[in-house]
Amino acid sequence: MANDPYKVLGVKKGASAEEIRSAYRKLAKKHHPDLNPGNKQAEESFKAISGAYDLLGDAEKRAKYDRGEIDASGTERPQAQGWRQYAETGPGERYSYSANGAGGADFEDLFANIFTQRPRGPAKGHDRHYSLDVSFLEAVSGGTRRITLPDGGTLDVKIPPGTEERDILRLRGKGDAGVRGGPAGDALIEIHVAPHKFYHRIGQNVHMEVPISLKEAVLGAKVTIPTPAGEVVMTVRPGTESGTEMRLRGRGVPAHGKHAAGDLHVKLNVMVGPVDEKLKIFLEGWEQPGFNPREGLK
């Protein structure tokens, strides 16, 4: 030990024996290794403190040191077997707090204790889990939603096109703050897609049924239909049967990631609608020789 023993104890050169004793006691109370088990730094500090007190607490040694006849080195007392060496191992159970002693480990306490035992390093903050209801069209075409967090903050969630039911969106760094310099956790948002009134999604394709009138079915027509990306005019050929499916290429879920754009499948349903006298009279005098609509049921 090359440190000045006066500095170690924090006293002046001319301090009285009582002042030195008092300074030593004050420091020893704080750093005594039996009161700080497992704390290497306390052990080292206490060595230095007791070494310094060994020298300055003894009037004769102190006088020699002050005259420069001895130096501060070599005054470190080798530490006697402290209480801690016994108390931390088997023999210490003789003075066990829970008097039933040997092996009576209280595991509730044990688990509380692991937290101070494991190495402490930077750790990523916890992830936070949220759930977000979106409309069918938001999920198909994408969009942005601002959600309000339980703590009052807000989070802008970008919903990518083609999002599916139960998809989980990860917002990096939007979870709990990191611990001891670690990165923040993520916000994990589970998406729930509301069903749509007339669209139905299968994979990347969107399906819908479009009603057409008897006249449109027989004579053909141009009908305007709503697609997820806006209205489109579609041609119905003359003589279109009810249940005919048409495919509008690329009008389903827009292209996203590795997926090409899906198609919009349109099923045409013929609606008879209100029937008037004119139609009745016409049909009474009208036949389709040789046509049996139930041919396929034979």
Binding site: L35, W83, A87, E88, T89, S96, Y97, D109, N113, Q117
Partner: peptide, 17 residues
């Protein structure tokens, strides 16, 4: 008493470790 509790916990935690 506090010291005995502290060391008992340390013994237990050493066993657990």
């Amino acid at each position: 008493s506090l010291l005995d509790q502290l060391y008992e916990m340390r013994r237990n935690s050493a066993r657990l470790n």
